[in-house]
Design a protein around this nucleic acid. Structure first.
Lengths: 241, 241
DNA sequence: TGCTTACCACCTAGGTGAGAATAT
DNA sequence: ATATTCTCACCTAGGTGGTAAGCA
């Protein structure tokens, strides 16, 4: 048992973990087995989880570019159960879901395994820019990772998250209690807890493969409003001469 | 003697203060008389001071609006001499320069005193949004107060700086050492230092009075590029039908 | 073929002073 | 008269997917 917590389907990490049982709410509660009191009661609720599920049902894709691309939907959480006065650091990383490389079969509209995963760069950690801050600060409003960007540039020096295209990833969220006591390193393993929401899994791509994903992005991302066609029959597509 | 520091012309606050002597550099050094070691060596250099002086020579004006308006030029400083490991809070406030209310005489292109200053709202403090942070963080790059906004709305609840139009103000910058020791309040008066750059003084206005100020704003603020006329003779003014 | 890159039109979001309308 | 408020065209800054060209 570790201080991690997974919502959704049961799996090895679920042992001894409460919260996110049979219902469909996206609220996770940290496991309490080894956790310090500052993190043992922390609960995390995924925001926009209806939208996340809509994407997940189609098979979410996230664009990766050399310069870095935002995620959409944005990973946002509501946190409760922190010690209001204690100081916390919030961060994210991305775990590769399996040791596979994929390609999209347009004729069957499905993802096929093409082989073993490419060599993976050691996963970076993305610190939430407001870190560190006290629990009261984190809990009083939604915590948004909207500045986080995904890149396929292995030599990236902008601090973006490096992912391999055509590989599948699971975003993971960490709450780390900043222990002010001198010998805090001894208890470091007790001072954090981690949360994974299965509905936030995605395929990293350099261009969208599934057209239904593209359409859902266009319909739901305000920055893609220019591609919306409210009434297709009396509207021309742009980019046509 | 207090922990404050004024650049430019000599005055009562200059007594016992080193730095910013006869030369024209905008570097201030905190006074050391009562200051704690974490602030006694702090030096602050005003960025864009050539631009600030250009405005100051014409009589700087800053727009105040109900919704809040940014300053231009932006108040930006380069800091050195902090304890890299110590934690600091950076903030600003605005002191009224004198007890006077002004009006602009267009025929003589000068400011005239019209009477005593209006009743002043107690001056708010604007915390730099990155506060608190360690000295190393503050010193490694320019500290910019570009999110600071000025308002004439006495009932403002957006945290903007409330100023009276047609009154003159002196921006003031504070460096506060966050003392982690339990009885820190006893030494609170030693844990900060303040800096005032005379070239950043300005008149708060709801509309520009001096046309030369307007032209310098248009020429130097990127957001006003739409009002620039590089070659007046073959360009029409906009807003004319 | 399959995947990646560079550029583009089109958005969101918000900072400018001009000018007209309004308030005091 | 003088000062303030409101709306607007015109910017900056940067996030979208489309498209075509480039690359293995």
């Amino acid at each position: 048992c570790n201080n991690s917590c997974v919502g959704g389907a049961a799996g090895p990490h679920r042992a001894g973990i409460s919260g996110y049982a049979a219902n469909s709410s996206s609220i996770l509660k940290s496991s309490a087995c080894f956790a310090a009191p500052q993190v043992s009661g922390v609960r995390v609720q995924l925001e926009m989880h209806a939208l996340w599920r809509q994407f997940d049902q189609l098979g979410t894709e996230m664009i990766v570019t050399k310069a870095g691309r935002r995620m959409f939907p944005t990973f946002q959480v509501q946190i409760s159960g922190m010690d209001p006065a204690a100081e916390y650091v919030l961060l994210m990383d991305f775990l590769i879901v399996d040791d596979k490389r994929y390609r999209y079969a347009f004729h069957s509209s499905s993802w096929l395994v093409t082989g073993r995963a490419d060599v993976v760069a050691p996963s970076r950690m993305h610190f939430h820019p407001d870190s560190p801050a006290c629990g009261a600060q984190w809990m009083k409003q939604t915590v948004s990772f909207d500045t986080l960007k995904l890149t396929n540039n292995l030599l990236d020096d902008n601090g973006h998250m490096i992912l391999n295209s055509m590989h599948r990833y699971q975003p993971r969220f960490h709450v780390v209690y900043v222990d002010p006591t001198p010998d805090s390193h001894a208890n470091a393993h007790r001072n954090f807890c981690s949360f994974s929401f299965p509905e936030t899994r995605f395929m990293a791509v350099t261009a969208y493969q599934n057209h239904r994903i593209t359409q859902l992005k266009i319909a739901s991302n305000p920055f893609a409003k220019g591609f919306r066609t409210t009434d297709p029959q009396d509207r021309c597509y742009r980019h046509h001469i």
